[in-house]
Amino acid sequence: MISIQTDDFDVGTEYEALRSTGPSTGAIVTFSGLVRDSGDLSGVTGLFLEHYPGMTEQVIQGLIDEAGRRWDVQRARVIHRVGRLALADQIVFVGVCSAHRGDAFAACEFIMDALKTSAPFWKKEITREGEHWVEQKESDVARSRNWE
């Protein structure tokens, strides 16, 4: 279940959808990412995100499939917003349900770490002084490598 969208999402609704998976679900882990006021630059006032339609969904599906091979994943949900976003707006949601908490935590963390380095998204920070395309961070690459 993947959505690339400009509209905001409701974490409660997404949680309930994961919860409805069935009585064998024993754990749900979610992550929500927000626009913050600092990144590569300080004084960030917003973001602009672009993606490669079709390819983005394919890459994310591959990450979900890989998580399912590694852990007992009953269902996974990824939402990523694109377009112009303001401070404190939600950017991304990753939710995973499983029979056991360890699998749900690991799969959720894996998907989010891999999403930061594998999916074709481009992020521009907007500040009062101008705009700046964000380069991939070495710390994100290092976290993603930990899963290899």
Rank of each mutant, 00 (worst) to 15 (best):
M1C: 06
I2C: 10
T6L: 03
T6F: 09
D10C: 10
V11E: 15
T13S: 14
E14C: 12
E14Q: 13
L18N: 04
L18M: 06
T21Q: 14
G22I: 05
G22P: 09
T25F: 08
G26P: 05
V29N: 12
V29G: 09
T30A: 12
F31Y: 13
D40P: 03
D40C: 01
S42D: 15
G46C: 12
F48Q: 11
F48D: 10
L49I: 12
H51L: 05
H51A: 07
G54Q: 02
I60Q: 06
Q61A: 03
E66L: 02
A67D: 11
W71T: 02
D72I: 00
V73A: 07
A76W: 00
R81Q: 04
G95F: 04
V96P: 07
C97Q: 03
C97V: 02
R101K: 14
D103M: 02
F105V: 15
F105Q: 10
A106P: 03
E109V: 12
I111W: 11
M112F: 10
D113K: 03
A114S: 14
S118L: 08
P120H: 10
P120A: 12
K123I: 01
G130T: 04
E135L: 11
E135H: 13
S139N: 06
S139T: 06
D140L: 02
N146A: 13
W147P: 03
